[in-house]
Amino acid sequence: MVNIVFKFFIAISCLLIFRGLVAEPLLDGADFDYGEYLSGQCLTCHQNSSDEGIPAINGAEALYIAKKLILYKNKELENEVMQLVAGALDKEQIASLAIYFNSLEK
């Protein structure tokens, strides 16, 4: 029984370490207040009640937002406005925006 619990503990630890190594670096340095301030630039266009013309992003997964912003920053996704906005964001700013928008209600 102790052995099973130990193995389970090791498995969970590995999972957490794996997540830490692979996924969370994109969100390193995230600063909620900074994200709230920076979100002002996004909210001129993105709103929550409709996807018409421009998608709603409130409540989206933080990693999804961060990855999208990086793709726009690298010009791997098309849209001049988003390439411009993301192009001017550094890693900390992207992470901050990602956790802030994730915190908002859909």
């Binding site: 001129t44 266009c45 709103q47 018409e52 013309g53 421009i54 406005v81 390439q83």
Partner: peptide
């Protein structure tokens, strides 16, 4: 940094730009 639409864009892109402006109006 800055950008401007191009004169040789296709119709689909121009339509999308118009639709984006509707999204912006609702957003702002």
């Amino acid at each position: 940094d800055k950008f401007v639409s191009k004169t040789d864009e296709g119709n689909a892109k121009r339509k999308k730009t118009y639709e984006e402006s509707i999204g912006w109006y609702n957003g702002i």
